[in-house]
Design a protein around this nucleic acid. Sequence first.
DNA 1: CGGAATCCCGCTTGATACTG
DNA 2: CAGTATCAAGCGGGATTCCG
Lengths: 113, 113
Amino acid sequence: MLRILGVIGDKWSILVVGTLRDRTLRFGELHRAVTGISQRMLTLTLRQLERDGLLTRTVHASVPPRVEYTLTELGSTLLTAATALGDWAAAHRNEIENNRRHYDEAHPPRARR
Amino acid sequence: MLRILGVIGDKWSILVVGTLRDRTLRFGELHRAVTGISQRMLTLTLRQLERDGLLTRTVHASVPPRVEYTLTELGSTLLTAATALGDWAAAHRNEIENNRRHYDEAHPPRARR
DNA sequence: CGGAATCCCGCTTGATACTG
DNA sequence: CAGTATCAAGCGGGATTCCG
C-alpha cells in the first residue's frame, strides 16, 4: 500500500499530473508550468509516472526533438481522488494556519540559557 | 497550498492519523501500532499534527506519566479526504504493479559496457 | 530540445544515551 | 513512560556538463 501511495508521496507527482489535467504538454512546457522543479526532478518524476501507467510518453522523430506527455485514463482517476485532498487543503487552509500561529505563540522556541 | 499538503506529504503523518481513527492512544501504544517508526520520528510527527490542530495531546499528571493523543474534528475530516486516495490505491494496486512490471521488462537496466 | 551522467552539499532520519 | 539531546550517515535533489 505504501508503495502505491508513494506515487503521491512525492510532491512533484501530483503537480505534474495536475498540470496535465486537460492538455498534452511537451517536456519544456511542463518544465515552465511546474514552477520550481528542476530538469532532473521533472525527468525522474515523469519516468515514475510513465512506469506506473499514469501518463504516456510520445516521442516524435523530428528536429528538434518533440516529446509529449499525456495523462492516461488511470492518471485521470488518480486526479479525481487527489482532488478530494486538494479541496480539503483549500477548505481548511486558514484554519490550519491559525492553529499553527496559536501553537507557536503558546510554544515559543527555547531561549538560550 | 504546498505548505498545507505537506501535512500528508510526510508518510508517517497519515499512518499516525489513520491509527487514531477510532480510538485515543498513548504514546507507547502508537509507537507499537505504527510499525517501523522510530521514537524520534513519532515525537516529531505528533508535534506537527498537534501544531496543525489535527490531534490533541493530553498529559495526565501521574506516575508513570500518561500522555494521550486524540484525533480532532479537523483530523477526522482529513482522514475522510485521505481515504479517497487510499481507496484509489487499493482499487488500482494490481493495475499499477502490472504496469511497473511491463515497464521494467521493456526498459531493462543499462548493462555494463 | 530532451534528456543522461556526475558531483556534491544539506537535510532528514536512525541509533544511542540521558532525563523529568 | 514519554520524551529530549547529540551525532553520524544516507540519500534526495540542485547545479553543472555533455550527448543524440
